[in-house]
Amino acid sequence: MGLYEFAVYDMFVPTVAIFAFGMVYRLSRYVFLYKRAAQPMWRKTSVPHKIYLLIDAFVHAIVAAIKRSKVTFVSGIFLLHFFGVIPILFLLSHHIVWWSYYFPPYSILSPLAIPTSATSSALTLTAPFAPVTGMSHGFVNTIWGPLTVVLNGDVLAILAIIGTTFKLLEKIPEKFKEKLARVRLGDFVALLLLLAILISGYMATHHLPSGDIETYKFMLGLHILTAEILVLLLPFTKFFHFVFSFWYGKLHEAYDLWRRGL
């Protein structure tokens, strides 16, 4: 049995099971530690202001990063998240097909699918003539139009790889030279894993390092397996922010802002 078969057929159920167990474990800690206490008198704020504060709670850290941590904003927020992992994970055409296979309603996002290839995306704009094709459309038929020159799997994956690599390299002097306590071993593990997923995905897409079927299957298997490792580690690592702690933290912060009437 090859790596591909192992990742697709053997690891899928354990991955989902460990993920589910981890989520129940983590979330139950929040439930059991919940303590109800008397409330201070809330300041009066209007509903529109509350809506503003709710949005602001999600946005102001990004604004803070733009103002004072430009490197973090460009590498960590912009490249790694906004332009890298988030659109690739949720909107890359291959991934939409994958999500829809396990969760059919997800196919509703199909019109937003981002094409995989930079070459076909560029040709949409630059080719002097339309190809002879039996399809109803000449090139990549997507609502993103000319944006596909940038908004395609290749470019986004490269941006995400640059962002992740930068974050990884940035942490080496932070950990070993500046001796920052907040830089943890787990940060390196998480970033290396993410890098492995991105690089193996990019290589599988481009049939690298060679075009034979066995190498392709191995690389795709590696991509799926590393992604599964991320999913099963998710509840126990910093990746948890993606499914819970970011949302919980920001909603709690908005609630606190309402209470204090800021």
Partner: peptide, 16 residues
């Protein structure tokens, strides 16, 4: 409590 648990467990070391 659960809020302090979040403070303890959720830092991703971004440094913002």
């Amino acid at each position: 409590d659960s809020v302090t648990l979040h403070f303890l467990e959720s830092c991703v070391s971004c440094g913002i």
